[in-house]
Amino acid sequence: MIAIKEIEKVGAYTQLMYRVFAKPDKWSMFFRQYKEELKKQGIESLAIVVIISIFIGAVITIQMIKNMENPLLPNTLIGLATRDILLLEFSSAILCLILAGKVGSNISSEIGTMRITEQIDALDIMGVNSANFLILPKITAFVTIMPFLVLTSMFVGIIGGYGVAVFTDMITVKAYESGIQYSFTPYYITYSIIKSVIFAFIITSVSAFYGYTVSEKGGALEVGKASTDAVVNSSVLILLFDIMLTKLLL
């Protein structure tokens, strides 16, 4: 029974995406919405990305120092480990899990509320493709802003580790610097960006799906549930795709 329900959901999701990826009724309106969304999903996520990344970068560095107190291990490994954790996993997958909470719940509750207050019906009745009008700008905006968020997170995370070297005597600046430059693989950045773009698509489209399909008679209760479902399901999907993409790309 549960399996059938899930398959039905995948079907409904596919149908919705088919309506979303249509030519916008009017491009100028699309770009207007797109810009709004860039601001809302992107710029307004920047602060949280910076704060979290800087702290996590510092924490990883401290933990690496503690783990590698063994004098046989060269302390360039500390910078290297910090860098690779950030580049490979934190700034893409973990960051997206965090953003799934912020952006995903925002999207699903916004669209869900529009559904129960008949604003989506109002769009439909004007002859607007409401799925396309509401959802496409959100998906495209978040997907395009995502690489910048990832790069910012990587950069700021490494700065966080740097802070540990500068402000404490746990590791010298020189050791940290040589660590973060040691056997650097630029492909890790590409890999992270590819992953994160896919995660961005998952977060926005899955959350929009849960919001859009709130039943009109559902009220605030169902909007709340939709937003929980959106975050939980996009997080699980991110984890699944993280494994698959890692197998595929690395």
């Binding site: 529009m114 207050t117 008949e118 604003q119 019906d121 109002a122």
Partner: peptide, 8 residues
């Protein structure tokens, strides 16, 4: 619409 449905 019954609830006005203005875009907020």
């Amino acid at each position: 619409f019954q609830g006005s449905a203005l875009f907020d």
